[in-house]
Amino acid sequence: MVKTRNRPKRLDGFQRLFLLLVICMIILLGYILSNIPGGTLGLEDTVAEFQDRSGVESPVTAVLLNFRAYDTMLEVVVLLLAVIGAWSLTKSPLPGQVADISPIQMGVVRLLAPVMCLVAAYLVWQGSHLAGGAFQGGAILGAAGVLILVSDFPQIHTISALSLRIGLVLGPLFFVGIAFCCLFFTGDLLGYPEETAGWFILLIESACALSIGVTLAALFAGSRPESGVQKKQPAVKQSPDRGNS
């Protein structure tokens, strides 16, 4: 391992000036912040008032997926954008990970990954009344994906690029689709019919959790899967640990 140390640096004039500036700014902002009268303002009463019309019991989920669902929709797109950006940058294969994986590790991963998927599903399900939801479930799924990637299961190389893309786009596309459906049925974009709002939210959450999981795993892998076009390139030098596996 190369040491990642860098030489210690002394601050030069500009940096000292900047330090002074930052300190002054923080003191000023801190003074202002602690003098803002707190406690009275906020939207908790408004949220509580409309809670029973939102279809879910958890106020955070109600805000995320009903009252301000438009924000969440755009935000799922942000996640997707990060993947598109990452894929546009590299065309190297998925990073071959540690060359020698012990069978114990494989066993642990085999055991752990399905459990994590279950936990993720449970988190999405309980999001309607307790803490949890699409993001948390998606994050757990993503962590499971990272685990699988790290142990370099041979199966992950058989996933086709198209199905991966479908997994990535599913959440946002589903979200937009539901939004348009609502527009068609109730006349409001993302205005779910009141009696079935809970189901709509659960559907969207499941699709988004799946997509978020795939997205996070793809971001960890860091490069797009090879499609047929790239394979034609002459393989001058194989990355050593890929050769081993």
Binding site: G42, L43, E44, V47, A48, P59, V60, A62, V63, L64, R68, D71, T72, E75, V78, L79, G133, F135, I212
Partner: peptide, 16 residues
Amino acid sequence: EVDPVPHAMVLTGIVV
């Protein structure tokens, strides 16, 4: 109650 709107905002922000 705790105001849920900032919580939703932070969740969004963390994922971003």
